[in-house]
């Protein structure tokens, strides 16, 4: 597969939105992969956090928005804490989630109707509140 890269793709709208919402400079990333190396849930991600940054920067927007990565991220901040460039990668993930969740149509990433009574009964409220805040439009 080849990709065409131009000024337009490198400065794509999603990248700029992500930079604005996260307050992070995507160009600062030098792709060392430390975020992916230390991420406790990267085993379940289809793109590693470092790839998400790269794809966003190069304008591979549809791949990024289709990836499960921001929705697997648990905001544990291990990546943020060890990034040698001081990037707050957890904020980049949050920005990507908001790009999706702030669209006009509802794009929920938790299906409330599918939550079982057993789960609701056992789960502490904070899990629902934080989950809903992260994953519901």
């Amino acid at each position: 597969m080849k990709i065409e890269i131009s000024e337009k793709s490198v400065r794509n709208e999603i990248a700029r939105t992500v930079e604005w919402v996260s307050g992070q400079n995507l160009f600062a990333c030098y792709q060392c992969g430390n975020c992916t190396a230390g991420c406790p849930v990267s085993f379940a991600m289809d793109l590693g956090p470092h790839q998400v940054i790269r794809y966003t920067l190069l304008g591979l927007v549809s791949e990024v928005l289709a990836s499960n990565t921001p929705w697997i991220c648990a905001s544990c901040l291990q990546c943020t804490s060890r990034c040698p460039k001081g990037l707050d990668i957890a904020r980049i993930m949050e920005a990507l989630r908001t790009v999706v969740l702030r669209k006009k149509e509802r794009l929920d990433h938790i299906s409330i109707v599918d939550l079982t009574d057993d789960l609701i009964d056992r789960t502490p409220q904070i899990a629902f509140i934080s989950g809903f805040r992260k994953f519901l439009s």
Binding site: P40, V41, A74, S75, C76, I110, L119, A127, F128
Partner: peptide
């Protein structure tokens, strides 16, 4: 100091 999975227990 590793994450317990947090709210992913609801979503994943």
């Amino acid at each position: 100091i590793e994450c317990c999975g947090s709210f992913q227990s609801v979503s994943a």
